[in-house]
Design a protein around this nucleic acid. Sequence first.
RNA 1: GCCGGUGUGAUGGAAUUGGUAGACAUACCGGACUUAAAAUCCGGAGAGGGAAACCUCGUGCCAGUUCGAGUCUGGCCACCGGCACCA
Length: 822
Amino acid sequence: MERDYQPQVIEPEIQKYWDSEQTFKTIENPDQPKFYCLCMFPYPSGKLHMGHVRNYTIGDVISRFMTMKGYNVLQPMGWDAFGMPAENAAIKNQQPPAAWTYDNIDHMRGQLKRLGFGYDWDRELATCTPDYYRWEQWLFTRMVDKGLAYRKKARVNWDPVDQTVLANEQVIDGRGWRSGALVEQREIDQWFIRITDYADELLDDLDAVDWPEQVKTMQKNWIGRSQGVEFSFERKGSEERLEVYTTRPDTIMGITYVAVAAQHPIATQAAASNLEIQAFIEECAHMSVAEADLAQAPKRGMATGQFVIHPFTGEEIPIWIGNFVLMEYGSGAVMAVPGHDQRDWEFATQYGLPIKPVIQPLDDDPEYDLSEKAWCEKTGVTVHSGRFDGLPFADAFKAVAEALEEMGIGRVTTNYRLRDWGVGRQRYWGCPIPVIHTDEGLKTVRDEDLPVTLPEDVVVDGSGSPLATRSDFVETVDPDTGRPAKRETDTFDTFMESSWYYARFASAFSDDAMLDAHANHWLPVDLYIGGIEHAILHLLYARFFHKVLRDLGLVNSDEPFKKLLTQGMVLKDGSKMSKSKGNTVDPQALIDQYGADTVRLFTMFAAPPELSLEWSDDGVAGAHRFLKRIHALVTEHLDQGRHVSNELVDLEGLSDEARDVYRKLHETIAKVSDDIGRRYHFNTAIASIMELTNSVMKFDATGDADWAVRSEAVEAIVILLSPITPHITEHLWSSLGHQNSLMDVPWPKVREDALTRHTLTLVVQVNGKLRGRIEVPSDADQTTILTMARDEPQVAKFLEGMVEKKAIVVPQKLVNLVVAPA
RNA sequence: GCCGGUGUGAUGGAAUUGGUAGACAUACCGGACUUAAAAUCCGGAGAGGGAAACCUCGUGCCAGUUCGAGUCUGGCCACCGGCACCA
């Protein structure tokens, strides 16, 4: 065996060995338990970044661990290959997006292999290939058939100079990122999918998945189911009525104005005869369409000069246009109760509109001061509300709702914050929407004509869609009539591709259907791992798709991801690594310098997965040093020539020191198994292996019994570390005389009899402060423990002149004596 | 703005169910080896006080619950993620 640790020699050798042995080919044996471990697939942006390395190392560690635990593991990898960056790169480099993407995929695949991830590469997929997206097109046509997809107008950011639609991130301070032109809002016809049809199920099924509470809460709030009342106002001098939705009908007597969105027909109508309003609406149309921008913009508004009639008082109430009212939520109009809604309060205060208190707290609430802010609690009773006076929230809600219903102008409804999913994108590098425009209207493309293939030899210059100018793509024929027709040139939102790839991996070899029976063998994904930034959108869309697939009979489960592990970001100097900040760390350079195992070890050791990970070059060097120590430990161990394998250690014959090392060994096995298998806290698993290593290195083995302990410990260290640093351990395993791969070695079992202790150390506190320690027999009773605690000299000191009020004994842990001066 | 998180030594973090705060590392300091340096090995170390034994304080800030709070509750502050066309 060579003396030094040489990762650059070992790692490619081991990777070749795995390759030739087909170590990571998926086994699908119905008699064995299955485990589908999936990491969010990467966008092929060029090269791997540290976030990828972290994500995929977590998945690989768990996959290897589960394989050693006897599971059939499916761990696939693929490419989320459509998207904007390819178009941006194309503009910059005059290279077609397809070529750029495929080059990147080749490079990044090489990097993943160099990191030693155990993927079943036979199942690799790239979403930009027709083999993949044809099934997405097929699914979309089914959605159209079922009425799940429909056309609707939607607002987009329009760059008037580049003549193109901009993504929200391409709008910087209200201007197009390339042209610098003031962005406008435009309404265009778009395809939408009725995700709201599944809103209740998407909400309720959250209870059935093993996901972090915070993610479930975010999704719940995003869906935002609320009980409210929908009703309409009579408009003064108009036949038409104004529809509003409110979750607080109990405050209806406190309405002092009504606010409509700038896109609301009333606003448009008012603008027709008023230049000021026209200018105001025009100004609103120059905002970004992003909700975050709207919510933070200063509240602005303008009176329309029109009025509605209060349904109960008959009072005239002014209609205002407010830039904070969303056209997409409810009916684009709200009744404003400034006394009991903070947003309404701010708007009213700014424009001098009256504030009318109609809810009063039951007890004196120092927070109740309507000249300072609105009081929004639902715990009060109605006042100044005429016939509705004196009612608590639920009763007032009911009474008002019933009254409106009796008048035939309102009803109780369930409303959702969730909106239908707009899936059309006016971009080139995406999956073509399989629709043709014929003289008989819109038609979906027939199954036998799928896929609609995206031409890959295009020139992208940043203005307009390259597809629209490709007559060979656009010009087609209506198969029903034989007359000319035009293809849709919009492509799908790339969230469409990432909403079902997890299922395709399980059914990767199916040529004649989107999914086959293998999908149900593997699904749902047992563990899904990815960035917390996907907590809402991607995960919600994928859950929705899964339910659609289920309703089409393609899968038989309700949820796609049984368990979810969300990883934090990789930071450097306290902030997210990014090119613009110039604080990126290229994993490739580290692999070249230290090898894949060191990079894997550092990223797993530096922090638990869900926390952000602060990058440290020194930390990487430290991880490498540890691997050198492990290498030296095994080398020196073998040098002694007394290594034994598979020898059952006889506990009775051990010295105290050997017994301690042996207990530590089995405690470590228990700890590492729990940390990797249940907690996913790899940093503490590694720390405990380091502790064990330190103990074994200090252990001076003499007799045969000692060497049996030492040998078992050395082998266990190699096995326990193998999911994290698979190359060096595979290499050392073979040095230790084994012929098989560690992937075929069962995960070690804890020997319970090795864990027992004769004595325990208990901490003794006096009034909650640590004052001493006692060594007690592990079977000592409470009286004995208390006597020993009181007699401990350090403790006794603090008991002098005191009366003991109480004594608390926490088994295995501590004693707390509560005393007071006599 | 709204929703969700995070905050512990010089640094990354540990403390899993309310029970020894700082495991394991990194950086640093001292020692061994070396002509020297690197590498490696051994040792030290939260802050303050003390010759020492020990004592006091200490988990972003302010209150509270408890025999006992890093952990639970309320209020603040700072930072991070998401906000529907970034993926």
